[in-house]
Nucleic acid binder design. Structure first.
Lengths: 238, 238
DNA sequence: CCGAAATCGAACTGATCGGTTCGATGTTGA
DNA sequence: TCAACATCGAACCGATCAGTTCGATTTCGG
């Protein structure tokens, strides 16, 4: 009768139901992460994951319903890990540019890391066959990270430290500027290794320079030409 | 004795060797294109291509050595098609901004098209397992297209219409600005359809605004602050 | 030390897929 | 009309793989 979900007696604290031990679950996910990263989704075999995780095949299927389910759980776990790092950056002390730089540095370093690149490769590779998987991945990942930057930009505009503009598009532009020359090249394995910190810093500084030239109020107030009115046009797709 | 490769007699003009008929070759590539686009590389079966192309399996293997070979040939054919469209844009009449706009419009429209997106999905999906495939794809595609823009920017700098800068990085930045909010979202199927012409135009105009704010000489000469000296720092990876 | 339960591990199933083979078929040049 | 030849099409091969089954083994609470 003792329901394992409601039983909080001592006897249950070190004993889990079948497929309920979080340590073993993590062990499986760690192995899956290694194998998926090394081989990609289709080429990765459950036998490989079995071997890498040091867990029997039957046990994996006790913890996860299918290969797809296992992969989805893996993505979810990684994502939460990433957000912890990014969310803090915009609360950095310093001026607008400094906080943007901190955000850009962290974002660029994380997105160009082998783990994130491999995850993107897998998602993009199946996005044609399973559009909802890709869309969900973007929604819960990039879109959520973009929302942080978007809120920051809106606050800065209210404070007069950034020119009024289509914040959604400006946020997209800043991110793409940070990733310019790195992310796409990493995805296509044209850059086999993640960029080092110097390259990232140079890229983010260059992005910041361009971004400030367009959206920093001092450049605008100094140069009062009509040519540089910030277009507030239609919202960009986001 | 008559070697089919060197025999130019009339008898050979309407008769091709096995696996040498360019019309049938194209027929196979058309079918392969449809199937690869619909299903992705791994999920696409040779049987599907056989059906779609209306060609027997044996014949396909007379024209192509393997699935990989077939796919490579398909990519090569598509690429040449694209370059014809892009190469012309920078020779458009008009000022610097107009020509950049023409380039950006064409580039964005093509790269966000379903054909190109699907090709990217496949390449990126296997780039982990076969890095040389991905690298070659980037080398012969994006890199070559970037070279056009790069040469253009250098000419404009010499003519004093663009500020001296790291042209390689500036070119990357312009391209990413044009694709901001569109290309990555298309790859991940967050945008199921290609953007329409209005969206593309708005995006390219926004990109152009930002790019000009940073690299147009008039804005710089007017605003002589030290803050806006264009950094000529280390070359960005390209 | 016992007994229950989770896990192991190895064999097995059923299906898919890339690639091959080979006789039948249809087209073409002579 | 005939002979050569590219193509067809359907069966076939060998390998791989996701997922299942089940008895043996380990683990842990009592």
């Amino acid at each position: 009768m003792t329901n394992p979900d409601t039983d909080t007696s001592l006897s249950r604290l070190s004993r889990f139901g079948a497929g309920k031990d979080p340590a073993k679950r993590d062990q499986i996910l760690d192995g899956a992460n290694t194998v998926f990263s090394r081989m990609g989704f289709d080429a990765a075999g459950m036998a490989d994951i079995t071997r890498e995780a040091g867990v029997s095949k039957g046990t994996i299927y006790v913890y996860f319903d299918s290969k797809d389910d296992l992969f989805a759980a893996l993505i979810d776990r990684q994502r939460e890990h990433l957000f912890r790092d990014i969310a803090a950056t915009l609360d950095t002390p310093g001026g607008t540019a400094d906080r943007l730089r901190a955000y850009g540095l962290t974002l660029t370093r994380l997105l160009c890391s082998s783990q994130v690149i491999e995850a993107h490769r897998i998602i993009i590779g199946i996005a044609g066959r399973k559009p909802d998987v890709g869309a969900t991945f973007y929604e819960k990942g990039a879109r959520r990270g973009m929302a942080l930057l978007l809120a920051f930009l809106q606050d800065e505009i209210v404070a007069g430290r950034v020119l009024p503009c289509d914040t959604s598009r400006a946020a997209q532009q800043f991110v793409e500027l940070c990733l310019a020359g790195l992310f796409r090249q990493r995805l296509m394995a044209y850059l086999p290794q993640p960029p080092d910190d110097d390259q990232i810093a140079a890229n983010v500084d260059a992005a910041l320079y361009v971004f400030c030239a367009a959206y920093a109020p001092d450049a605008q107030t100094t140069h009062a030409g009509v040519k540089h009115t910030v277009p507030e046009g239609k919202h960009s797709p986001d």
